[in-house]
């Protein structure tokens, strides 16, 4: 990163406050010297132009904003796949086919995915 003004598109920002990230396992370290930090990306821009970067945590938080909860107007009806508004009574879906709801069981996001035997 140059100290000069070559990154014209990148607005200047204050240096973020120190953040402590606890690593329990070396595998959580980002590989190589990629422009990422453990626990998420620290800067949301990259040299050579702005790229819009979001970490998982931020994206998950946006899920709860009111606008994110409205189904899109042009969502096609595909039985067993999508659920446009007003479609619920007509199609009898078995419980396994219920769309993702925001009331997802709280545990469902915490379940371990380390049990893969591949």
């Amino acid at each position: 990163m140059s100290a000069g003004g070559s990154c014209g598109q990148t607005p200047s920002r204050a240096i973020p406050a120190t953040r402590r990230v606890v690593l329990s396992d070396g595998a959580q370290l980002p590989p190589g010297d990629y422009s990422t930090t453990p626990g998420g990306t620290l800067f949301s821009t990259t040299p050579g132009g702005t790229r819009i970067i979001y970490d998982r945590k931020f994206l998950m938080e946006c899920r709860n904003s009111p606008v994110a909860k409205t189904p899109p107007r042009d969502l096609p009806t595909i039985p067993g796949v999508t659920s446009p508004p007003g479609d619920e009574p007509a199609t009898e879906m078995n419980p396994n086919h219920l769309p993702n709801s925001h009331e997802d069981k709280p545990g469902s996001h915490e379940e371990s995915q380390f049990e893969m035997d591949i």
């Binding site: 979001y54 994206l59 946006c62 899920r63 904003s65 606008v67 994110a68 909860k69 409205t70 189904p71 899109p72 969502l75 067993g80 796949v81 999508t82 659920s83 446009p84 396994n96 086919h97 219920l98 769309p99 993702n100 709801s101 925001h102």
Partner: peptide
């Protein structure tokens, strides 16, 4: 991001 969630939240999960 918000538009993504509007779709994603009204689609079944792949496991289903």
């Amino acid at each position: 991001v918000e538009q993504f969630w509007r779709f994603y939240s009204h689609m079944v999960r792949p496991g289903d």
